[in-house]
Write a protein that binds this DNA or RNA. Structure first.
Lengths: 109, 109
DNA sequence: GAAGCCTGTAAGTTGAGACTTACATATGAC
DNA sequence: GTCATATGTAAGTCTCAACTTACAGGCTTC
């Protein structure tokens, strides 16, 4: 995991509104407008937060059509469990100095 | 853990410079000026970051006198291991709605 | 048609954190 | 004395994320 990845997750989850969004989604998938009502925040604002959570791969979205034809953008939680400890941080930061080498997978430096 | 506590830690660690500071401190305790040189950032700036890390209880400081009489403010890592997952977040957010009750310890609601 | 939902986005404001420069203090060495 | 080290902090700038308002569509139901 690069420090960019780590920072994306930490910054994404390190915000009160996004924390609340995640907690609300813990009860099950919801579409944007409905979630906005529950969290009592404007839809465009929530939209922005959800985009951020999605980039950090903490949630997944899915545009669907309701039975009555409305477009509903559903969001649901992606499973995640990040351990914020020394090993994680040192590991992530190490990659920054380790030379910006392109590698597909693994730690073959 | 309240959501304030959780946010303090996440926001503190969710910043590139502070991540680097932590990684550098992983090699052992350092005083501010020395750490500033290693990270190549201004001392006042680093100072601010360290204060933030200390508030989140990720580092501990200690003002000491060097053999030659100089005051050195040493920082060292505090042990930490936060699991960023659903349980942690839901638990933290739950306390916000759970009524701002003062309680010493335990979850006796 | 108008009204009720929904998504998507642009444009503007604002506020907080990040960052710089500068200074005051203290100590020891020359 | 001056020069080097260190801490502590004030004051200012600046950038960016957060947030609001407003509008563009789409589809139903009446």
């Amino acid at each position: 995991m690069t420090s960019d990845d780590l920072l994306a997750v930490l910054a994404a989850v390190g915000h009160r509104q996004r924390l609340r969004a995640i907690a609300e989604l813990a009860g099950g998938r919801l579409y944007v407008s409905e979630l906005a009502r529950r969290l009592e925040m404007s839809r465009p604002l929530l939209y922005m937060h959800l985009e951020r959570l999605e980039k950090a791969e903490l949630v997944v979205s899915n545009l669907e059509l309701s039975p009555d034809g409305k477009a509903l953008k559903y969001f649901e939680l992606a499973p995640f469990d990040l351990h914020v400890n020394l090993a994680t941080i040192v590991g992530a930061v190490a990659q920054d100095t380790e030379g910006p080498v392109n590698m597909k997978k693994g730690t073959a430096a």
